[in-house]
Write a protein that binds this DNA or RNA. Structure first.
Length: 165
DNA sequence: GCCAACGTTGGC
DNA sequence: GCCAACGTTGGC
């Protein structure tokens, strides 16, 4: 999941109370469909900083709530307001909730990933790709993890969500 | 700040 | 339904 750290950084997610773990503002159908169709509770995702001097994977988060309507699309005051959703009275966009789980002790830069022969097929590295939500294969995941050496966050940073069953 | 790659929009 | 114009993303 990409984010511009000036808007919402990995550290912001780490510090955020549970009520602010929603990943809102995704306004692309393909990205939306990934969240709606693929994201399951307990799934892990990379959090990637884009549109910065050194784009990089910052850490790992866990899906703690599956897709539900992104109500910001209906809020005229929101930067993510969507008139077409408002016209139907129903948001056509979804968000998920994620909680920070671990931080890369060595954030994995885009440049580093480009250097890996084993990552050449990765969606993120495709020229011109702009999707803010992208698939990662198991192999790609393992390679990025081995490069980043994630450390679990301490309790109180990136809160644990109570399990119901 | 540039620009390539796309997605979206809207006229026809 | 085509497609040109336009807007946005995001690396560089």
């Amino acid at each position: 999941m990409k984010t511009e750290p000036g808007e919402f950084s990995f550290d912001d997610l780490v510090a955020a109370p549970r009520s602010q773990h929603h990943w809102d503002g995704v306004r692309n159908y393909q990205a939306r469909n990934f969240m709606r169709d693929e994201f399951k509770r307990g799934d892990l995702v990379f959090i990637y900083h884009s549109s910065v001097a050194e784009p990089k994977v910052m850490g790992i988060a866990e899906v703690v709530r599956e897709a539900y309507p992104d109500s910001f699309a209906l809020d005229p005051k929101s930067p993510y307001f969507d008139p077409k959703s408002e016209a139907t009275g129903e948001s056509r966009w979804v968000m998920v909730d994620v909680a920070a789980r671990s931080r890369m002790s060595q954030p994995v830069t885009l440049a580093t990933m480009r250097e890996q022969p084993t990552l050449q097929g990765m969606a993120l590295l495709r020229p011109g790709q702009r999707l803010s939500i992208q698939p990662v294969t198991k192999d790609e995941w393992d390679i990025v993890v081995s490069l980043g050496k994630p450390c679990p966050l301490l309790k109180g940073q990136g809160q644990r969500s109570p399990r119901k069953s």
